[in-house]
């Protein structure tokens, strides 16, 4: 939890930077552990409920541990009309999980996201921070292989 203290210090313990702190913690830990939120509440001197309010309001946050690799399927309009739904079907079938879930081996978490702003390459999936564009159902397996 040392990282959490460091992150809070980075933002000068200001309560207006709570969202940024949570983002950094999530980046570090993969999700927002309850202990980390408690530390933030203590050090910034805000009620824990305010942190939960932020963590549940904003899409970017997760309160449960996620997989080693996050598969983001873009569901922006361009991706939608170019077959994002088919990619989701295929991913759900291949990984045997639903949107928002994590595989049993902790390898992948599948999440639908709003437009990632790569509409020229639709349909797009983003794994960790790597973009894969112009995909068809057939490409899905090959793309996933790269991630251990």
């Amino acid at each position: 939890m040392e990282a959490v203290h460091r992150i809070i210090e980075n933002y000068g313990k200001r309560d207006r930077s709570l969202i940024a702190m949570l983002q950094d913690i999530q980046r570090e830990k993969g999700y927002l552990p309850r202990e980390a939120l408690k530390i933030v509440a203590d050090e910034v001197n805000v009620p824990l409920s305010r942190l939960y309010s932020l963590a549940t309001f904003y899409k970017a946050f997760s309160l449960v541990p996620r997989g080693r690799h996050i598969v983001h399927v873009c569901t922006g309009t361009a991706c939608h009309v170019r077959g994002a739904v088919k990619l989701i079907d295929k991913l759900e079938q291949t990984l045997e999980i639903k949107n928002g879930e994590t595989t049993a081996d902790g390898r992948f978490t599948l999440e639908e996201v709003r437009c990632v702003g790569c509409c020229g390459l639709a349909p797009v999936i983003v794994i960790d921070e790597e973009f894969h564009g112009k995909l068809t159902q057939k490409d899905v397996g090959k793309v996933l292989e790269k991630y251990e």
Binding site: G76, A78, R114, C115, G117
Partner: peptide, 11 residues
């Protein structure tokens, strides 16, 4: 905070 799906000019 370019939220409209299908728009990415601001990015």
């Amino acid at each position: 905070d370019e939220g409209d799906p299908g728009a990415y000019m601001d990015r």
